[in-house]
Design a binder for these strands. Structure first.
Lengths: 346, 346
DNA sequence: TGAAATTGCTAACACGTGTTAGCAAGCGTC
DNA sequence: GACGCTTGCTAACACGTGTTAGCAATTTCA
């Protein structure tokens, strides 16, 4: 089938016996133009008859706005792979955007091609603004874009840069997790990070862990800290290393449920039981956390809200030139399941 | 900061001392137009100096093609929520699209608003074509769109409709899983579906299960079949019910890893051990399958390829008017881990 | 030397819409 | 009866680009 000619506003005008301008006024409900009810109905009828749909491209051309926001995923491959709540973030983002008539252009950065210039999204006017997840601080492209005044919102913090962002309260969440273990009576608490400390979120979670220790008068012991790398495999290795330390920690805070999955396996392989031999608390509350063995106590991360708030911030920036709150930290909460218990009496 | 005026090709032309037409020819590398090397360099230099970026909207206006494909997610909320490999599908889709210079517009259908007309994506020319995941057969909008000749590719089959689709070989995968259990020596094999049978994929997996039984000369026993509903919770209930049947099945094929997670928990709660008391095989091979207890033997579903192939099919349809293969079934393979063993000698 | 071909460039149209300025007719007012 | 006001509509411009047709200058050829 050959592609049919598009039905334009001109065709509608012809059928209704009016000018194209009138068609535009009627269909856009322009109120300050006087259109008689009679011609209004004629136009609407003609549009219905011809199955007319206004061309979004032409509309963007003349209005200067695309009503599209770009969602750029700058995560490393492992991270994106392990990022089980990406769908949730995307969902929140889309719904917030849709509510205001915006669409979402999805732009992941392919792993083998790190210098894809996503800045073209704005420069070539594919989108009105960008939400960028997983910003890296060596991202020259990003900083330049921001200097040029492009509307940007980050998901995840970037230190020493005044780009608006929305993020989880990593410090608060990590402190909450650690305090929970302390309150259970633990004094020797290990930490496995979610990723290397070059990732802001990892450093923040470590910081929250230390704050909680300090507040309880417990010494920070570097030998109890190991580093994950997004994957269950890295969690397995980190926990295996931690199990060599003597005396053993009685509890471990694993700053990512996905990494915790590997830690669980390492503990099983060592013949220890959770929580009787060792307590474990996670971070993220992935959808499956409640169905692990044992069900994992963890810090819930508001993935949907993360996307929603990012979109809201960007759209506010787009609609008005008003200064918007430059950042927003989302609260976490603890989900108590069965992986934590008081330490065994020694 | 007021929004700066856009730099247009006209500005570049002025600076280079040539016409706008020439600028267009140079920047688009139009070969059959004779442009001297000297002016070519002048234009390139001017464009560089002004940081010129061609306006995608204007370009779409004149070429008539948006170079954007829509990805519509029509899944039910529970399904989308449990769909742990959506990121993978999206990744494959994006990479295939990017390779040919296309972008991806992400359009989930909000659960509370099922009749959002995603057909507007095509009619209003936001996109050149649509990839739709999780088609429902009562979707009038979809059928009309197809009748109107809109370029469509489905992820997931729709019975009795000739819309091009790409799907997993559910029947083959389910047969493979069941045959594996039979080959281990099992004769009494249960089935927990991934979803109600109104979903094509569920019906197909049931069908593959029956084929394998039949080929081995085993009777199909309806009392050994239970129905999941995407979630771990539904898997828990289905398995709990199955554990009431006497004699117990010695193995169960759970047609979704996510559902299998609940089944695992039910078996644990019943005080049985896997695989010594009962064998379990899953479907999907979610990223975490290898880190469950025990590591789950399962059928790998090529999520990345699903997205990739869908995009390839759509783009081929868009680039040429040639008839493309109307559908494509992707092969699965079995990933052997530790949740299956021969049945206990009775 | 004149005609024909080639080289290097440009004017002008088209894409489909939103919107401003303005026009004709009808109506009321002094 | 002339003037102004309201009503209802339209002509024309602008958005920024790709592309066709064609034009002037130069070179080639007989």
């Amino acid at each position: 089938m050959a592609t049919r000619k598009r039905v334009t506003a001109q065709d509608v005008a012809r059928l209704a016996g009016v000018s194209r301008t009138t068609v535009s006024f009627v269909l856009n409900n322009v109120t300050d133009m006087r259109i008689s009810e009679e011609t209004r109905q004629k136009v609407l009828e003609a549009a219905r008859l011809l199955n007319y749909h206004p061309d979004a491209v032409a509309r963007r051309m003349v209005t200067g706005r695309t009503r599209v926001v770009g969602f750029v995923l700058r995560q490393s491959p492992e991270q994106a792979f392990a990022d089980l709540f990406l769908p949730q973030v995307l969902n929140g983002l889309s719904q917030a955007a849709a509510r205001q008539g915006y669409q979402v252009l999805f732009e992941p950065i392919p792993p083998d091609q790190p210098n894809t210039m996503y800045s073209r999204l704005v420069n070539e006017r594919h989108v009105d603004g960008i939400i960028l997840s997983g910003p890296r601080f060596d991202d020259e492209d990003l900083l330049r874009l921001h200097r040029e005044g492009a509307p940007l919102v980050l998901i995840g913090r970037l230190p020493d840069v005044e780009i608006p962002y929305v993020d989880v309260d990593n410090i608060g969440g990590a402190r909450m997790a650690t305090e929970y273990l302390i309150q259970k009576g633990h004094r020797r608490i290990g930490l496995i990070t979610n990723a290397p400390l070059s990732y802001t979120a990892s450093a923040e979670r470590l910081s929250g862990y230390r704050q909680a220790l300090e507040a309880a008068g417990l010494a920070f012991d570097e030998t109890l800290v190991r580093y994950g790398n997004f994957t269950p495999h890295s969690g397995y290795q980190a926990m295996a290393a931690l199990l060599q330390v003597r005396p053993l920690p009685t509890a471990v805070f694993v700053a990512s449920d996905t990494v915790a999955l590997g830690a669980l396996q390492a503990i099983r392989h060592a013949g220890l039981r959770i929580p009787s031999d060792i307590s474990l608390i996670g971070f993220d509350d992935i959808p499956l956390a409640g169905f692990l063995d044992p069900p994992l106590t963890t810090i819930h991360l508001p993935a949907f809200n993360l996307g929603w708030e990012a979109a809201e911030m960007l759209l506010q920036r787009l609609s008005a030139e008003e200064a918007t709150p430059p950042y927003r930290l989302l609260a976490t909460h603890l989900v108590e399941r069965e992986s934590c218990a008081p330490p065994r009496k020694s």
